[in-house]
Structures are given as structure tokens and as C-alpha cells.
Computed example of a mutant assay.
Amino acid sequence: MSKNNGKGDKCENDFPQPARKQTFSEMIYDPRDGSFFGRTGKSWGQLFLFYVIFYIILAILFAICMQGLLASVDDYKPKWQLEESLIGTNPGLGFRPLSEQTERGSVIEFDNKKPAEIEYWTGLLDDFLKDYKQTEGRKMKHCDYNQSRNPNDVCVVDENQFGPCSSANGYGYRVGKPCIFLKLNKIYGWVPEIYDTPALNMPDDLQHLFNQTSEVERQKIWISCNGHYGKDKEQFQNISYYPSQGIPTYYYPYLNQPGYLSPIVAVQFNSPPIGSMLDVECRAWAKNIIYSGSIRDRMGSVTFQFLMD
């Protein structure tokens, strides 16, 4: 009987006891084992040492990776150029002013009797041309077709050659003769291949201009604008290009020269239709500019819309 009682006492001793409740002050510091927030000083020291070593090794590995990456990158020119790059060899054509309000899309809409609407579009052009007006401290030269130049030279884009498409004239918006500015995207090392004779699919007026231009001044990327659809072509007339209907080749190639600015062409619409939208397509002409008028895969051209009330 005493033997059974001994076994019963052992079972009672092995039964787990409930954990002792800690006070808030003991959670911070427990005087029984000298722990802070559940860890002794030795445990905290080991944890701190582990993370110090871990982050030192991590920083060393990161520095090695960055050093290897930077060693393969040139500060002035891309490693992959032209055909080897994602950008490729076909520059896109862009226009300004382009509204920052995405819901406007590519529509230039204004009432030339409302100064606030005119100021909105002229303000966008002022911002776009700001760098072209600030040429102080930049090493630039006035280039010409007959002038020899170093590929690293930066040719001036003279805003005084934009005629009535100037800030002083409100870019023509105040008088109902709005201007837009066209420019090609920059591609490092790209050089335009010019036409020696007019392309067969060039507009008749551009072919006529080409034939009337001297051989030296044909050294340019030609620009043409026209109505995008049949109804637009019927209303499309009387436009002017400044400083000429093309971009001279002496602005190329782009080699990331300090102070380089993309050449631009101003196009003025002297008699746009009133109260109806005019859909315009502008195109760049060079042998190595591939053209596609597809909505999904547009290349070598740009479309925008005018709506003047």
C-alpha cells in the first residue's frame, strides 16, 4: 500500500506547474537572472555581434557587386549602342506643346479670345524652350553647311531663327496662328542618311522644295506635315517652317556632348479651321528613318490635333 502511495506522489510531482506571471517591471529587468527584455547581457552581446558581422559581410558583397557594375559602365557613352541597344536606330518624332493633363491626350485646344487658355499653351512652350534660351557658360558654336566641325562640337539652336514662333509673339496663339515644335529623340551615335534625290513617296510640295534647294543645303532631315485623314487634308493649307523645313545634319551625331540640345523645327499653322478639329501628321524624312503610320506601331512620325474656337 505504501508502494502505491509512492507512485502517486511521483505523478503529482511530475505534473507541469503554471508559469509564474511577470510584472511589467520584471519584463524590462528580471533581477533573478539579470535579464533585460528577456535576454541576459551575454545573450544580447552575442546577438549584437552576429548582426554586426552579418551586415559587414552584406556591405562587402554589395560593394563588390557595385564595383563590378560600375567598372562595366562608361560615364559618357552607353555600352550597347544603335543596333545592339534596346532603343535601336530609328529615332521617334515628338512635338510640343504637350499638355501635362493626360485626359487632353495629344489635343491642342484653345479659344484665342480667352487669354487664360492661350497662356496655358504658351507657358508650356516657355518651359520647353527654357534651356534653349539659357546658353551662357555653354561651349557652343554657330554651325553652317559649308563649315567643317569636330564631332564633339555643340551647334547652337538659335531661337531667333524661329521667326513669328517666338515667345514675344506668343508663339502665334494670340493671333490664331499657332506654332508647334518638332524634334527627334536622341540616339547616341546615330547619323542620318540623307536623300540625294527626292523619295518617290514624298509629298509633291516637298519634292518641289527639294529640287529647288542647293545640293549643299540638302544635307538635312526633311520634315513634312499634312492632314492625317482625307477630311483633314482638305482643310490643311498655308503652313510655314522655321528656320527651314528640315533639321541640318551638322547637329549629328549626338555623343553626349556637354550642353547639347536637340535641334528643333517650328511649324506655324497660319489658317487652321475654326471650330472643327484638325488631325495633323508630321513626318521625318531620311533613308535610315523607318516610317510606319500604324496606330499601334507608329514610327518616324507623330500625330496631334488642333481645335481652335
Score class of each variant (00 low, 15 high):
M1G: 10
N4G: 01
G6Q: 01
K7T: 00
G8D: 09
C11E: 07
F15T: 15
Q17Y: 06
P18I: 02
I28R: 03
I28H: 02
Y29L: 11
D30P: 00
G34N: 14
F37I: 12
F37G: 01
F48Y: 11
F50C: 10
Y51A: 01
V52P: 00
A59R: 08
I60C: 12
Q67P: 00
V73S: 08
V73W: 12
Y76R: 13
K79S: 08
L82K: 02
E83D: 11
N90P: 02
R96F: 00
P97H: 09
T102M: 05
V107K: 15
V107L: 15
I108R: 14
E109D: 04
D111S: 14
N112K: 14
K114C: 04
P115K: 02
G123I: 03
K130N: 13
D144P: 00
D144F: 09
R149Q: 07
E159M: 15
Q161D: 04
Q161N: 08
G163E: 09
Y171P: 05
Y171H: 09
G172L: 07
G172R: 11
L184H: 13
L184M: 14
N185H: 12
W190L: 03
V191P: 03
I194H: 03
D196T: 14
T197Y: 11
P198L: 08
M202N: 10
M202W: 14
D205T: 10
E215W: 12
Q219I: 03
S224W: 04
S224M: 05
N226W: 00
D232S: 13
S240H: 06
Q245T: 12
T249M: 08
Y250C: 11
Y254I: 01
N256V: 06
N256G: 07
P258E: 13
V267C: 05
V267W: 01
F269V: 04
M277I: 04
Y291E: 10
S292A: 09
I295F: 07
I295R: 11
R296Y: 05
D297M: 02
M299G: 00
S301T: 08
Q305L: 07
